[in-house]
């Protein structure tokens, strides 16, 4: 039976889709059977980020409305046969799917995969609620900015109210130099403000732009720091204890974050 994990954020543009694509790819690289679902109906994007946009025949709404079977709508990844994408509909809106239908859909996926990752739309409305309703766990992606952290806090409350447990946190686009100069919130600041478990730290990395341009996951790029961070997050999702990557110019940061992670995980 699969673990169903929703990746959400509140604020748009913080890296949910990139995170979903990279974690899905990384988990599949490690041998898991993975389905990634784009729950952002009307604003489909996971397909282009993964480079699968030309292969779409049916989408999530086609499955829900009975025009296609789930297997027909699932698109196999170009490189990894154990990785599949269930694309969102582009010409419909979030009301095209009900929460019950989302639960039914995720339960269907559960039987065939080890991990089901759901890419949530931004916001706190129907689309977000649909994205978490079938989830076992929720990951919040945020960046070290006031608007993103504020929205993330709101999402923590909504996820807890929906009885999905306390979400875990990925802090994306950290710029160690700015943090060192005291001009960017540190990972520790963000954790202190949100008071949730840290799952990963992803440094700001230009390689993400390149890999997204090409429709290839950054985890394939050995030289990409962000790619390595996503690989580590995938290993943590598999239950491994993996130390946090040392951020450039920040000696000691590794030990401190590992301390937090280790303590809260047990």
């Amino acid at each position: 039976m699969a673990r169903v994990i929703t990746i959400t954020s509140g604020k748009g543009g913080v890296g949910k889709t990139t995170t979903t694509a990279n974690l899905g790819t990384a988990l599949a690289m490690r041998g898991a059977r993975v389905a990634v679902m784009d729950a952002d109906i009307g604003l489909r994007n996971l397909d282009v980020v993964m480079g699968l946009e030309n292969r779409i025949v049916y989408d999530l709404v086609d499955v829900v409305e009975g025009r296609a079977r789930l297997r027909q709508a699932l698109i196999k990844d170009k490189r990894l046969p154990e990785l599949c994408l269930l694309p969102a509909a582009q010409t419909r809106d979030k009301d095209a799917v009900s929460p019950d239908q989302m639960v039914y859909l995720t339960n269907q996926l559960r039987t065939e995969f080890d991990f089901v990752l759901i890419d949530s739309p931004a916001g706190i409305e129907g689309g977000f609620r649909n994205a978490i309703v079938g989830a076992d766990e929720v990951i919040i992606v945020t960046t070290p900015e006031v608007s993103a952290v504020r929205d993330a806090d709101r999402i923590v409350g909504l996820v807890e109210a929906a009885e999905k447990g306390t979400p875990s946190l990925i802090v994306n686009r950290i710029k160690p130099r700015l943090v060192n100069r005291g001009e960017m919130l540190s990972v520790e600041d963000v954790i202190e403000l949100l008071a949730i478990n840290l799952l990963g730290i992803v440094p700001d990395d230009e390689a993400i732009v390149t890999s997204t341009n090409r429709g290839e996951a950054a985890v394939y790029d050995q030289h990409s720091l962000a790619g390595r961070a996503f690989l580590n997050i995938a290993r943590r999702l598999n239950g491994e204890e993996v130390p946090f990557l040392p951020l450039q110019d920040q000696p000691g940061v590794l030990e401190r974050f590992f301390g937090i992670f280790g303590r809260r995980r047990t």
Binding site: V149, G157, V179, G182, M184, S186, D189
Partner: peptide
Amino acid sequence: GRRDRSASVAKQRLMMVLVDDR
């Protein structure tokens, strides 16, 4: 010191905002 650095300003502001929000 860091009192005037923008990161600590951000943190202080967020603390207030989150209390208000919650």
